[in-house]
Amino acid sequence: MMGVALRRLASALPVLLLVSLITFGMMRLIPGDPAAAIAGLSATPQQVAQIRADLGLDQPFLQQLVHWYGGLLQGDLGRSILMGRGVFAVTMERLPVTLGLSAYALVLTLLIGLLCGIAAALKQNTIIDQLAMVFAMIGISVPSFFLGLVMIIVFAVHLGWLPTGGYVPFAQDPWGWFRSVTMPAISLALLQAGLLARITRSTMLEVMRQDYIRTARAKGLPYHQVVFRHALANALIPITTVVGIIISLLLSGAVVTEALFSIPGIGQLLTQAVLNRDYPMVQGGLLLVTGFLVLVNIGIDLLYAVLDPRVRYE
């Protein structure tokens, strides 16, 4: 088990190194002078020079690279121009909000996706199967921001059941938090739930055809026991891998959802940074989120090894 963990971590290192190199290189995509772009049209040459010096853009390329990696090793991702503070600190402050929303959405995704997928597989080629798959197809086709807007119009503007936007911290008022993040979580979860339902259905169908399921049925085990103890337990193994992809989709989906519902998480932070040309924040935020996801995926691979003994002995 330890070996799997170490090997997985070692294979992630070059990826992390390249990811950070790509984020470093992103600033060079800005056409012309990044400092001038940040300063805006009305800036004086002195202001532009000041920004250039602040960002280290006046140094030779190699020195900038050394400085970037040196900073990374110390947890220094640069300073946000908009906030005037370290990118790392600002991101960490917003992290719990995004994690809370994503966790809520993940619970919804798992509930809806697994239920629909299992029901569709067990009732293959019936109306239940077709309804579940139509739902899944719509789920993967409706843009989350459109679903969010429709929900705001229906449930907030017309029915007045839920707030149109804004955020209440959980610690301050759990019920208020629940109300403020329910619509964002649903709009975030639908796409993933659709994906998960489709994958769960195909995996369950695959497993239900196996010989050991027939044996279990033949020896007279009750149906529900066969489904949950034999089929689902085995189907969950490939589904676990998908959860890694789902978490990645949730975190990137949160960018749009948070902007739409004015939720002060990492997504909103990044969109504001993008619109205000706060390039260091964009760079650092992207690197942090991606690094976090690489770690999540390592965690999922380890979980995979726990669930499936065959992986451990390979």
Binding site: L18, V19, M26, I30, V282, L286, V294
Partner: peptide
């Protein structure tokens, strides 16, 4: 494939946002 892995490690829409933010 290592370069590929690194580019795929970024969440798709976030990378697209980052690149368009830089390019304009």
């Amino acid at each position: 494939m290592r370069i590929n892995d690194a580019l795929m490690a970024f969440p798709a829409i976030l990378l697209a946002i980052g690149v368009t933010a830089m390019l304009g």
